[in-house]
Amino acid sequence: MAPSADIAIEPIAPIEPPAPLAPLHALPPPFTDSNLEVLTQGAEALVYKTTFLTPATPCVVKYRPPKPYRHPTLDKRLTKTRLLAEARVLVRCRKEGVGVPGVLAGDWDNGWLVLEWIEGMTVRKVLDEWADKVKRGDKKEGDDEMLGVMRKVGRAVGRLHDIGVCHGDLTTSNLMLRQPSSSTEHASPLFQHRGHQTVSAMREAAMDGADGSEPSPPQPQSELDGDIILIDFGLVSQTIQDEDRAVDLYVLERAFSATHPAAEPLFQKILTSYGESFKGAKTVLRRLEDVRLRGRKRSMLG
């Protein structure tokens, strides 16, 4: 038997990439008017900003379009299951006081969900801007404000796990730092009063006051003072398994090291704060070590 030989002397001719086609942006009814602003074309869903119920209420429409690459039966099954799971968990989180956007409406068969608008920016962007500042010498690496954000992230993830929910896709793009309450405006005029403060801000104040160890500095207010809001629960699961919780943290850790290599030490702060956030968090951290090790064993075979 002769070895499968290829032609000798063969320059590598690069393959011409096919011309990219325009992506599809068509929502199902009733979301067909021009009052839509594309926010992201995520892997899972198309996310738009629009208004809902009143022309003054901003909201997010999340549409899971049919994936042409997926078998239609599988696609329908996945879309419905995931959308419903997402909505159920969000409502549960709101009931339990975990920082997530509220559910305003949804249609599982047609693949859309309307969610509360969160004013703020992603932790990913916060980290990017911080990295720029460090590079320019405006900030130093162990910056207290930044550590404060990390502490809040750890606490938010801990709260989520505490109520038996694992996010499933915990990346820095799925963590929002809400714009501090003094500058947010509620859309409904019913709630537009002077000197108004959100419940979440009060909760934060109450919590800080309760443990007394970390009094929040009263002034001046920084843009990093807002609450952490967890978004995109597209791959969420309801579970209290240490394994699932640890994998959540592992995914976040890898998102950190993959996109913010310089910010890896900050992740330690998240873990510390997570460890103090609920009973059982310490066991999860121990499990995380196992998950890391196993992750490294995975490349055993070629």
């Binding site: 419903l84 909505a87 969000l90 409502v91 509220g102 559910v103 409406a105 949804g106």
Partner: peptide, 8 residues
Amino acid sequence: VVLGMITL
């Protein structure tokens, strides 16, 4: 919470 519940 209520809006979520009536949606679901």
